[in-house]
Write a protein that binds this DNA or RNA. Sequence first.
DNA 1: GCTTTCTTACTCGGATACCTACTGTCCGAGTGGAATAGG
DNA 2: CCTATTCCACTCGGACAGTAGGTATCCGAGTAAGAAAGC
Lengths: 158, 158
Amino acid sequence: MGQGVEWGAHCCLLIAWLGEEGEAIPTAKLAEAFDLPPAYLNKCLQALSRAGILASTAGVKGGFRLGRPLEKITLLDVVVAIEGSEDAFRCSEIRQNGMGADRSAGEFLRPCGIATAMRRAELTWRRELAAQTLADMMLNVPRDVAMRAKRWYAAVGN
Amino acid sequence: MGQGVEWGAHCCLLIAWLGEEGEAIPTAKLAEAFDLPPAYLNKCLQALSRAGILASTAGVKGGFRLGRPLEKITLLDVVVAIEGSEDAFRCSEIRQNGMGADRSAGEFLRPCGIATAMRRAELTWRRELAAQTLADMMLNVPRDVAMRAKRWYAAVGN
DNA sequence: GCTTTCTTACTCGGATACCTACTGTCCGAGTGGAATAGG
DNA sequence: CCTATTCCACTCGGACAGTAGGTATCCGAGTAAGAAAGC
């Protein structure tokens, strides 16, 4: 899995802290906050924007703000927005090649047990991620960390 | 996830069908059975062999046989053997960079909520895969498919 | 006929290229604010 | 003083390279079967 997921999730939290008044946070400031490559981080935030998780504003005083409240953003949303919605395990039906090529197609109507088990495992993974919202992530963070982030943002300039 | 997992799992099942007498199945036959690139398939089977899932024999009439009974091979074993045991999501602790670089290290002793949630989701995924053995995969396959595989193997010549 | 040796074909195993996709960078289009000139 | 206009710095957005890891291939080391020769 790519780094963009971690970057995106942390940036959403930071945007929530810094943008409580509805102000937009530019990519440059987020990149500086976490010491990340600004242009590539922007690419990840674009993906979150396309998914509706973030909303982008151009021009001076522009940047990114939350597209919907933190309680309605699950970790699965972030993962899907950046990594795509396709399953990690993709069954290419090799049982239908070679030895089984001349078999009647009706025999392969239902997917093989391996693909089924893999898919079931991934569904539990997705369900677990969908049960965790970014608001839950906030709860596990000490109160003063958010305060210090706001102070840092005020000190670093507009 | 790479294709090797699917290849490895299907090959283990085929090896179990064709090698009931303890005979070893060479890579070439397995590759022919599923129409896969023989050399690369061999590389995947090597990984399974290193993990103890398969046992390799060199020379004439050599090949691969099961390293332990199917009941003791879980899907997680196959995945770990081929893909490695590292988690898909790796936390690089970006919260400690930039803005939080000059923070006292004691504050970051416990992992952040995002990494924790991701790890929990992956653990459920692993648990689900560890609960499914290759023997369970066999049960969901029609009896005559295995028989036809044995007939094919006998017909294609040793 | 049995045993030993030798040959030989066959198999795995790791070292070597290729190619997709994640990572990283750059520059242009567009926007909103602020300064400015006019009323 | 208020308003409309112009300008401009700033931001996002997509198009363009670099690189690591999965994919694919080839050739050599080793082995066990089978043939052949000797007893």
